[in-house]
Computed example of a mutant assay.
Amino acid sequence: MANATGELTVKEVNHSYGTGKIKVPVLFDINLHINQGEFVALCGSSGSGKSTLLNLLAGLTKPEQGKIFVSGEEISRFNENELCLFRRRCMGFIFQSYNLLPNLTALENVELPLIFSGVSGKKRRQKATEILNRVGLEGRIDHRPNELSGGQQQRVSIARALVNQPSIILADEPTGNLDSKTELEILALMREMNRENGTTFIIVTHEQEVAERSDRVIYMQDGRIVEKRTRPA
Protein backbone atom coordinates (compact mmCIF):
# COMPACT_ATOMS: atom_id res chain seq x y z
CA MET A 1 0.00 0.00 0.00
CA ALA A 2 1.13 3.54 -0.71
CA ASN A 3 1.83 6.08 2.02
CA ALA A 4 -1.48 7.17 3.53
CA THR A 5 -2.98 10.56 2.79
CA GLY A 6 -6.26 11.94 4.04
CA GLU A 7 -7.90 12.15 0.62
CA LEU A 8 -11.21 10.39 -0.13
CA THR A 9 -13.16 9.97 -3.38
CA VAL A 10 -16.57 8.39 -3.90
CA LYS A 11 -17.60 7.57 -7.46
CA GLU A 12 -21.15 6.71 -8.56
CA VAL A 13 -22.02 4.87 -5.35
CA ASN A 14 -25.47 3.34 -4.94
CA HIS A 15 -26.32 1.18 -1.97
CA SER A 16 -29.23 -0.87 -0.64
CA TYR A 17 -29.84 -2.94 2.45
CA GLY A 18 -31.41 -6.39 2.32
CA THR A 19 -31.09 -9.29 -0.12
CA GLY A 20 -32.95 -10.75 -3.08
CA LYS A 21 -36.26 -9.08 -3.80
CA ILE A 22 -36.42 -7.41 -0.39
CA LYS A 23 -34.05 -4.49 -0.83
CA VAL A 24 -34.29 -1.00 0.58
CA PRO A 25 -32.30 1.61 -1.41
CA VAL A 26 -30.48 4.03 0.92
CA LEU A 27 -27.90 5.83 -1.26
CA PHE A 28 -28.28 7.12 -4.81
CA ASP A 29 -25.57 8.33 -7.22
CA ILE A 30 -23.13 9.55 -4.58
CA ASN A 31 -20.13 11.43 -5.99
CA LEU A 32 -17.82 13.14 -3.54
CA HIS A 33 -14.22 14.25 -3.14
CA ILE A 34 -12.64 15.30 0.16
CA ASN A 35 -9.15 16.78 0.22
CA GLN A 36 -6.45 15.97 2.72
CA GLY A 37 -6.73 18.15 5.82
CA GLU A 38 -10.36 19.18 5.28
CA PHE A 39 -12.72 19.42 8.25
CA VAL A 40 -16.05 18.30 6.78
CA ALA A 41 -19.51 18.09 8.37
CA LEU A 42 -21.94 15.56 6.91
CA CYS A 43 -25.45 16.75 7.76
CA GLY A 44 -29.01 15.64 7.17
CA SER A 45 -32.08 14.40 8.98
CA SER A 46 -32.35 10.89 10.40
CA GLY A 47 -32.60 8.40 7.55
CA SER A 48 -30.90 10.69 5.03
CA GLY A 49 -28.05 8.21 4.51
CA LYS A 50 -25.21 10.06 6.19
CA SER A 51 -24.30 7.27 8.65
CA THR A 52 -24.45 4.70 5.84
CA LEU A 53 -22.06 6.85 3.81
CA LEU A 54 -19.72 7.11 6.81
CA ASN A 55 -19.73 3.31 7.16
CA LEU A 56 -18.85 2.97 3.47
CA LEU A 57 -15.97 5.44 3.84
CA ALA A 58 -14.74 3.42 6.81
CA GLY A 59 -14.85 0.19 4.84
CA LEU A 60 -17.31 -1.26 7.36
CA THR A 61 -19.79 -1.78 4.51
CA LYS A 62 -19.04 -2.44 0.84
CA PRO A 63 -21.02 -0.43 -1.71
CA GLU A 64 -23.50 -2.31 -3.85
CA GLN A 65 -22.39 -0.24 -6.84
CA GLY A 66 -19.60 2.25 -7.39
CA LYS A 67 -16.09 2.79 -6.07
CA ILE A 68 -14.55 4.30 -2.96
CA PHE A 69 -10.95 5.49 -2.84
CA VAL A 70 -9.22 6.37 0.42
CA SER A 71 -5.61 7.55 0.44
CA GLY A 72 -5.42 6.55 -3.22
CA GLU A 73 -6.49 2.95 -2.51
CA GLU A 74 -9.74 1.50 -3.86
CA ILE A 75 -10.98 0.13 -0.56
CA SER A 76 -14.22 -1.11 -2.14
CA ARG A 77 -12.10 -3.90 -3.67
CA PHE A 78 -10.34 -4.93 -0.44
CA ASN A 79 -11.07 -8.18 1.38
CA GLU A 80 -11.80 -8.12 5.13
CA ASN A 81 -8.20 -8.67 6.17
CA GLU A 82 -6.95 -5.90 3.88
CA LEU A 83 -9.65 -3.56 5.19
CA CYS A 84 -8.73 -4.31 8.80
CA LEU A 85 -5.06 -3.54 8.17
CA PHE A 86 -5.94 -0.43 6.19
CA ARG A 87 -8.21 0.97 8.93
CA ARG A 88 -5.58 0.28 11.55
CA ARG A 89 -2.98 2.20 9.56
CA CYS A 90 -5.03 5.08 8.15
CA MET A 91 -8.17 5.71 10.20
CA GLY A 92 -9.32 6.75 13.63
CA PHE A 93 -12.88 6.65 14.92
CA ILE A 94 -14.81 8.83 17.39
CA PHE A 95 -18.29 7.79 18.55
CA GLN A 96 -21.20 9.55 20.23
CA SER A 97 -21.25 6.98 23.04
CA TYR A 98 -17.43 7.12 23.47
CA ASN A 99 -17.07 3.29 23.19
CA LEU A 100 -14.52 3.11 26.00
CA LEU A 101 -13.92 -0.19 27.79
CA PRO A 102 -15.27 0.36 31.33
CA ASN A 103 -12.73 -1.80 33.16
CA LEU A 104 -9.72 -0.06 31.62
CA THR A 105 -8.20 3.25 32.63
CA ALA A 106 -8.02 6.18 30.24
CA LEU A 107 -4.40 5.28 29.54
CA GLU A 108 -5.23 1.63 28.85
CA ASN A 109 -8.11 2.58 26.54
CA VAL A 110 -5.81 4.83 24.51
CA GLU A 111 -3.12 2.13 24.38
CA LEU A 112 -5.44 -0.36 22.67
CA PRO A 113 -4.80 0.69 19.04
CA LEU A 114 -1.06 0.58 19.76
CA ILE A 115 -1.33 -2.97 21.08
CA PHE A 116 -3.07 -4.03 17.86
CA SER A 117 -0.28 -2.31 15.91
CA GLY A 118 2.41 -4.24 17.78
CA VAL A 119 3.96 -1.28 19.63
CA SER A 120 6.06 -2.27 22.67
CA GLY A 121 4.75 -1.68 26.20
CA LYS A 122 7.10 1.17 27.12
CA LYS A 123 6.52 2.97 23.82
CA ARG A 124 2.75 2.46 24.12
CA ARG A 125 2.62 4.06 27.53
CA GLN A 126 4.76 6.98 26.39
CA LYS A 127 2.65 7.71 23.28
CA ALA A 128 -0.67 7.27 25.10
CA THR A 129 0.44 9.55 27.94
CA GLU A 130 1.61 12.21 25.50
CA ILE A 131 -1.66 12.30 23.58
CA LEU A 132 -3.76 12.31 26.77
CA ASN A 133 -1.74 15.28 27.97
CA ARG A 134 -2.35 16.96 24.60
CA VAL A 135 -6.12 16.64 25.00
CA GLY A 136 -6.01 18.12 28.50
CA LEU A 137 -6.29 15.02 30.68
CA GLU A 138 -3.18 15.39 32.83
CA GLY A 139 -3.93 13.79 36.18
CA ARG A 140 -6.78 11.70 34.75
CA ILE A 141 -4.88 9.00 32.89
CA ASP A 142 -5.41 6.39 35.63
CA HIS A 143 -9.16 7.07 35.94
CA ARG A 144 -11.72 4.65 34.53
CA PRO A 145 -14.59 5.92 32.35
CA ASN A 146 -17.13 6.00 35.21
CA GLU A 147 -14.76 8.34 37.06
CA LEU A 148 -14.73 10.84 34.18
CA SER A 149 -17.28 13.37 32.92
CA GLY A 150 -18.84 12.99 29.48
CA GLY A 151 -16.50 15.60 28.06
CA GLN A 152 -13.48 13.90 29.59
CA GLN A 153 -14.59 10.53 28.19
CA GLN A 154 -14.88 12.09 24.73
CA ARG A 155 -11.36 13.50 25.13
CA VAL A 156 -10.16 9.96 25.84
CA SER A 157 -12.00 8.80 22.72
CA ILE A 158 -10.31 11.53 20.66
CA ALA A 159 -6.91 10.61 22.10
CA ARG A 160 -7.50 6.95 21.23
CA ALA A 161 -8.47 7.92 17.66
CA LEU A 162 -5.34 10.04 17.24
CA VAL A 163 -2.71 7.92 18.99
CA ASN A 164 -1.74 5.99 15.84
CA GLN A 165 -1.49 9.28 13.91
CA PRO A 166 -4.09 8.33 11.27
CA SER A 167 -4.54 10.45 8.17
CA ILE A 168 -8.35 10.38 8.53
CA ILE A 169 -10.71 10.66 11.50
CA LEU A 170 -14.32 9.54 11.03
CA ALA A 171 -16.67 10.78 13.74
CA ASP A 172 -20.32 9.82 14.27
CA GLU A 173 -22.19 12.51 16.28
CA PRO A 174 -19.14 13.11 18.52
CA THR A 175 -20.79 15.96 20.44
CA GLY A 176 -24.31 14.50 20.56
CA ASN A 177 -24.16 13.52 24.27
CA LEU A 178 -22.51 16.72 25.50
CA ASP A 179 -23.80 20.00 26.91
CA SER A 180 -23.29 23.13 24.80
CA LYS A 181 -20.18 24.35 26.66
CA THR A 182 -18.47 20.97 26.47
CA GLU A 183 -19.52 20.61 22.83
CA LEU A 184 -17.64 23.79 21.95
CA GLU A 185 -14.57 22.61 23.89
CA ILE A 186 -14.53 19.24 22.10
CA LEU A 187 -15.10 20.89 18.72
CA ALA A 188 -12.22 23.31 19.38
CA LEU A 189 -9.99 20.38 20.33
CA MET A 190 -10.81 18.48 17.13
CA ARG A 191 -10.23 21.64 15.09
CA GLU A 192 -6.86 22.14 16.79
CA MET A 193 -5.79 18.58 15.98
CA ASN A 194 -7.00 19.01 12.41
CA ARG A 195 -4.93 22.15 11.89
CA GLU A 196 -1.80 20.99 13.70
CA ASN A 197 -1.58 17.53 12.17
CA GLY A 198 -3.27 18.02 8.79
CA THR A 199 -5.65 15.20 9.70
CA THR A 200 -8.82 14.94 7.62
CA PHE A 201 -11.98 15.00 9.76
CA ILE A 202 -15.37 13.80 8.48
CA ILE A 203 -18.10 14.32 11.05
CA VAL A 204 -21.69 13.10 10.89
CA THR A 205 -23.67 15.60 12.92
CA HIS A 206 -27.03 17.18 13.66
CA GLU A 207 -25.34 20.03 15.52
CA GLN A 208 -25.34 23.47 13.89
CA GLU A 209 -22.25 24.46 15.88
CA VAL A 210 -20.25 21.70 14.19
CA ALA A 211 -21.46 22.71 10.74
CA GLU A 212 -20.65 26.38 11.33
CA ARG A 213 -17.06 25.58 12.30
CA SER A 214 -16.36 23.18 9.43
CA ASP A 215 -14.49 23.94 6.21
CA ARG A 216 -17.30 22.39 4.22
CA VAL A 217 -20.81 21.14 4.91
CA ILE A 218 -22.28 18.32 2.83
CA TYR A 219 -26.05 18.03 3.12
CA MET A 220 -27.88 14.77 2.46
CA GLN A 221 -31.56 14.14 1.90
CA ASP A 222 -33.29 10.85 1.05
CA GLY A 223 -30.00 9.14 0.20
CA ARG A 224 -28.66 11.87 -2.07
CA ILE A 225 -26.19 14.71 -1.69
CA VAL A 226 -28.29 17.81 -2.19
CA GLU A 227 -25.79 20.56 -1.37
CA LYS A 228 -22.08 21.12 -0.75
CA ARG A 229 -21.36 24.40 0.98
CA THR A 230 -17.89 25.75 1.67
CA ARG A 231 -17.40 28.15 4.56
CA PRO A 232 -16.20 31.63 3.47
CA ALA A 233 -12.51 32.24 4.14
Rank of each mutant, 00 (worst) to 15 (best):
R191M: 06
V217E: 08
G44C: 08
V135M: 07
S45D: 14
N99I: 09
V119S: 04
E147N: 12
V13Q: 03
I158F: 03
T61P: 01
S16A: 11
L107V: 02
F86K: 04
S76D: 03
T52Q: 03
S51H: 04
I30V: 14
V135I: 09
R231D: 00
F78Q: 04
I30N: 03
V26I: 14
I115W: 09
S149Y: 07
L54E: 04
R89T: 15
P145R: 01
V110E: 04
L189G: 07
N99L: 09
L184T: 10
M220E: 09
Q65R: 06
E64H: 13
L53P: 02
T205R: 03
P113Q: 12
V156P: 02
G151E: 07
M220L: 13
L32S: 07
K228W: 00
E212W: 00
L27M: 10
L60Q: 09
L56V: 15
C84K: 05
F201K: 10
A41Q: 04
I115F: 10
L178F: 05
N99V: 08
R87E: 09
H33V: 15
I94W: 00
A106C: 09
K62Y: 06
S214C: 13
P232A: 11
Q96A: 00
A128K: 05
G66T: 01
E130K: 15
G151P: 06
D29T: 09
H33T: 15
R144F: 13
V226Y: 12
I68R: 01
Q65M: 04
I225K: 05
F93I: 10
E12P: 02
D179N: 06
L57F: 10
L60N: 07
N177D: 14
E130F: 13
C84N: 12
L184G: 10
Q96D: 03
R87I: 10
E209V: 13
L53H: 11
R144S: 05
A188S: 12
P25A: 10
E108W: 06
T230I: 15
N99Q: 12
G20D: 06
E185K: 10
L32E: 07
L83A: 02
N177G: 04
K23D: 03
P63L: 01
E138Y: 08
V10D: 00
V204C: 00
L8T: 01
E80S: 15
V10H: 07
G176L: 01
I68C: 05
L137H: 03
I68A: 07
Q221Y: 12
D172P: 05
V135A: 01
T9I: 12
Y219I: 02
K127C: 09
N3W: 03
A106K: 03
T61W: 04
D222Q: 15
L8E: 05
G66W: 00
K123T: 15
E183W: 00
V110T: 07
D29Q: 10
A159Y: 05
I186P: 00
K21D: 14
E209S: 14
